[in-house]
Design a protein around this nucleic acid. Structure first.
Lengths: 122, 122
DNA sequence: ACTTCCCTTGACGCCGGTGTCAACGTTTAC
DNA sequence: GTAAACGTTGACACCGGCGTCAAGGGAAGT
C-alpha cells in the first residue's frame, strides 16, 4: 500500500510517517516512480509507535519496540530492551508525579499564606 | 542599580531580565547612556517572578502577582487576581497528575501483559 | 487533453524561557 | 591610554513532533 492508505489505516498523518522514516523507525521499499510501498507489517509497526507515543513515550523510546516487532515477536514489548524502557518510563512518570505533588503543595501553601480564608480543594 | 547587580541579587540572568521587560513585567528607568536603572522594588518583583516560575507558573501567570506588588501589597499573592491564578494553577496541576496516573496505569498494564513475571514497582 | 488527487523533497513555524554570539558603546581600574 | 568588565539591541539556537506550504511529477478517470 502507499503512504496515504497507511496513514488512513493507522491514524498517522503522512507527514508523521515520513518523519518516522527519517528517524529510522520505518523503511519503505520504493516503486519505480519513487512512491513508498508499505506492507501489513508496517501497519503493525506504526500502530505500536502511535500507541506508545499516546502514553507519553518519545519517538526514540519506541525504537526497541519496533526492532522487537521486526525480529518477529508478536508484541513490541516482549523483548528485554523494551521491558527496560517500560520500567525506565514508569520511573520517569513516578518522578514527574512527585515533582507535581511537590509543586502542588508549594502552591497550596503560598495560597494559604496569601489568602488564609481560601479553601484549597484536594 | 544596574542590570548586572539585579541579576546577581535575584539569580536571574541579564538575558532573562531583559526578557521580562520585553514582556511588560519590568519597567526600568534609563540612565542618560541608556543603561537600565533598577530599584529595590524591582528586586522584590524579580524575586516573586522567579519563585513562581520555579513552581511551574508561566511568565504570563506571574503578571497579576507583579501588578499586585506594584499596587503596594506586601505579597504578590494578596490580590483577587493572583488568588484566581493560584486556584487555576492548582487545578492544572491536579489535571496533569491525573493524566500521569492514567499513563502510569496504562504503561504498567502493557508491561504486565508483555512480561507477566516483571515486578511493577509502586 | 484536462482535471483532480496522490506522491515527492525541502523548508519554515510553533512553544517558552533562556543561552549565546555579534557588533558596538561605556565605565572603571590600572 | 588601554584593557577589562559591563552595558546596549538584534538575532539565531534549542527541543520534538508535527502542520503546512511550495514546486513539482505521477496516476487515473472522463
Amino acid at each position: 500500500m502507499r503512504i496515504g492508505e497507511l496513514a488512513e489505516r493507522t491514524g498517522a498523518s503522512t507527514r508523521s510517517l515520513r518523519y518516522y522514516e527519517q528517524h529510522g523507525l520505518l523503511q519503505a521499499r520504493r516503486d519505480p516512480n519513487g512512491y513508498r510501498q508499505y506492507t501489513e507489517e508496517d501497519v503493525r509497526l506504526v500502530t505500536e509507535i502511535r500507541a506508545l507515543l499516546a502514553v507519553g513515550f518519545s519517538l526514540e523510546d519506541t525504537r526497541p519496540f519496533v526492532d522487537c516487532l521486526r525480529r518477529g515477536h508478536s508484541t513490541g514489548g516482549s523483548c528485554a530492551e523494551s521491558v527496560e524502557v517500560y520500567q525506565r518510563k514508569l520511573d520517569e512518570i513516578d518522578a514527574e508525579i512527585r515533582v507535581l505533588l511537590g509543586r502542588r503543595a508549594e502552591v497550596a501553601a503560598q495560597l494559604a499564606e496569601s489568602c488564609p480564608g481560601c479553601f484549597v480543594r484536594g
